[in-house]
Computed example of a mutant assay.
Amino acid sequence: MTRPSLAPLLTLGVIGVLLGSAPALALEGDASAPIEVEANQLDLDDRAGTAVYTGNVEIRQGSMQLTGDRVEIVRNDEGELSRATATGERAYIEQKPAPDEPLVRGWGRTVVYHVADRRIELIDRAELHKDGDTFDGGYLEYFLDRRVVQARSEAEGVQERQRVRMTLEPEQQDGQ
């Protein structure tokens, strides 16, 4: 008789502990929403506070989605999520900052979400879509709470310089 694998339960339990203790990601309901994880493999190091998912990784909680070929989740000493890093040819993150605002979507070969700072780094072939505006470059940094974008043509460890490009949509006047 074959025993059922505990890996799926362990995977969800670990992610629940890692992400569930994080502050509200954007919408109030995001932090209390169920966390759904799909991947081909999990490597967990509980003592180091890391979980590494590989193989077409998809993580979703409320309005937040993070995808990549590899996603590493790191906890701080208090057991709270401190950083999630997705890598791949087109790693991706999306999140809804507020109920009345559109999704913020970002891509890069590396996407780093710093939980405490509520800051997203998009590295190498970085692209950010926010409120109809688009930003491209070698490195983009977006601060969720302040709605601040910082862009550079160069990123550490990236050989190719990627000029910063922006397309800004004009604000609509009342009555138009």
Rank of each mutant, 00 (worst) to 15 (best):
T134A: 09
G157H: 12
T134I: 14
G157K: 07
S153R: 05
Y139H: 15
E121R: 06
E160Q: 08
E80F: 09
D131T: 04
S82H: 02
T85V: 13
S153I: 05
E141S: 14
P102E: 15
E80Q: 11
T134K: 07
S153P: 11
P102M: 07
G132V: 07
F135I: 15
R118I: 03
E94I: 02
E141Q: 11
D117Q: 07
D145F: 06
P102I: 12
P97T: 00
A84D: 03
H129D: 09
A155G: 10
T134V: 14
L144R: 01
V111K: 01
R90E: 15
E156S: 13
T87G: 05
Q95Y: 09
A86W: 00
V115S: 03
E141R: 05
G108L: 09
R163L: 06
D131M: 15
F135K: 11
G108T: 13
A86N: 03
E154D: 13
G138R: 13
W107D: 12
K96F: 01
E154H: 15
L81D: 00
E156M: 10
D133E: 04
E89M: 02
T110P: 05
T85Y: 01
P99C: 04
V115H: 00
D136P: 05
K96Y: 00
V104T: 00
G137K: 10
R125A: 11
E160R: 08
E156Y: 11
D100E: 09
G157V: 15
A155M: 14
V104Y: 01
P102S: 14
R118V: 06
L128N: 02
G138V: 10
E127F: 09
G157P: 15
L103C: 04
I120L: 13
E127V: 09
H129S: 07
P97S: 07
W107Y: 14
A91G: 12
R105E: 08
G106P: 03
E94F: 00
D100F: 02
A98S: 01
A84L: 01
R105T: 06
V158I: 05
G138M: 10
R163S: 14
G137A: 12
D145S: 03
V148D: 12
V112H: 02
G137E: 09
L144P: 04
Q150G: 13
R163I: 08
E127W: 05
A155N: 12
D131Y: 13
